[in-house]
Simulated assay, not measured.
Amino acid sequence: MAVRAHDVIVIGLGAMGSACLRALARAGLRVLGIDCYTPPHAHGSTHGETRATRLAVGEGDVYVPLVQRSHAIWRELENRIGERLLEECGFLTIDTSRGGGELHGMGGFFDRTAAIAQRHGIRHEFLDGRAIRERFPAFAPPDDARGYFEPGGGFVHVESALGALLADAAADGAQVHTGETFPGFSDDGGGITVRTDRAVYSAHTLVMTAGPWLPQLLGSALAPVRLFPQQLHWLEPSTADAFARDRCPVYLWLHGEGPDDIFYGFPQIGAAREIKVATEQSRKQDSNADTPARCDAASRDVLIDTHLAGRLAGTMRGLRSAGCRYSVSPDGHFVIDRLPDARRVIAVSACSGHGFKHAPAIGELVADMVQSGGPTLPEFAIDRPALTDGWRNRESQK
């Protein structure tokens, strides 16, 4: 099989891979993207119609410039394709956990969000339970609930956004190969050789963005990353008008101190009288990303009975469900760094359930790393102690 030379090869074309491919192509590099499926597809984590976005990212200050830049890139793409990708319908965080609510490994998430908004000058307002009920009739919090409303938050149309990233990359010269299996690569010190079921390719740099497949593809380098299956549910509310987009923002509700004591959801999208709602589970792990992510009626019923009842207005009828996976680091931060024993390989992984909103800017971050040879951000380093020792430390604390 012939060897074909590229500056960079990107493996995996979900949100992160497509964003990296676009940024690298716009930088003028000869770039090839490979995916064993044809994106958008439902085998990884970049599907399900919508992804939430918010500017005051409670996971940490490091994310604020990334999500702000990502919003700007979505608007640039909208102007090119003439299609709406980012919907700024607002983002509402409700806290009835009495301050202990945890998300993505971060305790006190409501207070973290508020502090980050104030530090970065992000427009927001605080609401009590009564004000939330009067303004947003989809929600039924008690009077002592705390609310944080951010008008610049909202959601991104997932499949349309992914298609726009890939089309923009191709327009700038990127090659896109789909349905091509990636068994592995080798690094001889002078370059990367990538072998697929179709050909052998060479490149100066390899960017690995294969989502939940990365731990099994990269082995010990990403051993701390764990996979957690998640389920998304589409429901028909009896009070559907309360969830119309002009009356209901994207929302996150923290109602207990545990990592699973949350749910989040979206207003109605389009003409259908349905809403998408999900929770996050961080207890049952997956060992293999090749098996289909499960979804079942029992999980939907738990969501409705344990999380939504008494909190969302009216009653809910289940319509359909879908599964996906989170690749999670112990400290909830991403891994965006060169492999210690293969410096020409950059891993982009462990987005821990909050990566999509940052993807366009992370593509630019990776493109800058490739061109400059510079380091990653410290929070995303592959050798940080919170990653290498994180699960042991986290579990001992609990």
Rank of each mutant, 00 (worst) to 15 (best):
P249M: 06
R133Q: 13
G179D: 08
L55F: 12
T315W: 00
G153M: 00
H41A: 14
E257V: 13
W234G: 08
A361M: 02
N79M: 05
E134H: 08
C36S: 13
P249Q: 07
P378S: 13
A2F: 07
G100W: 05
R69Q: 14
I116Q: 03
D368H: 10
H104C: 14
L235E: 05
G190R: 13
V370H: 09
L29G: 05
R80E: 12
G256R: 04
G373E: 03
A242F: 12
L85H: 07
E125S: 13
L254T: 09
L127F: 13
R22M: 15
A322Y: 08
Q281M: 10
A19L: 05
I262S: 01
S372Y: 08
D305N: 14
V67G: 04
R338A: 14
S70I: 03
L77K: 09
G256E: 04
Y63C: 03
D241F: 02
A221V: 03
D128N: 15
S299A: 13
G154N: 06
A347F: 03
A145V: 10
S327H: 07
D187V: 02
H71T: 02
G355M: 05
K357D: 05
H307G: 02
G153S: 08
L377D: 11
S372R: 10
E236F: 01
R343W: 00
G121P: 09
G107P: 14
A297M: 11
I11M: 10
M16N: 09
P215E: 06
P330T: 05
V10M: 08
L32C: 03
G14Q: 00
F126C: 12
N288H: 10
S18Y: 03
R394V: 08
H47V: 01
S202A: 15
F380I: 07
S186H: 01
L92K: 03
H43S: 14
Q68K: 13
Q118Y: 01
L254Y: 00
P385I: 00
L166F: 09
Q281Y: 09
T291C: 02
V200N: 07
V345D: 03
L66N: 11
I262W: 02
P65D: 07
G258N: 12
A359P: 10
H333F: 12
R392P: 00
G153H: 12
P385E: 14
E364N: 08
E102W: 01
R343T: 11
A309H: 15
V10H: 01
G258L: 08
A15D: 04
A164Y: 07
F155Y: 15
A272E: 15
V328Y: 12
L217K: 04
R294F: 12
V64K: 10
R198D: 03
D337R: 02
F110D: 08
E78M: 08
Q118W: 05
G270Y: 09
Q175R: 13
D389E: 14
L377I: 04
G129D: 09
N79H: 13
D368A: 14
D301N: 02
V200D: 14
G100P: 00
R84G: 04
R123A: 15
E395M: 13
T205R: 13
A117V: 09
K398W: 06
I362E: 01
L308H: 01
A223S: 15
Q397N: 10
S282C: 07
R75N: 11
H354D: 05
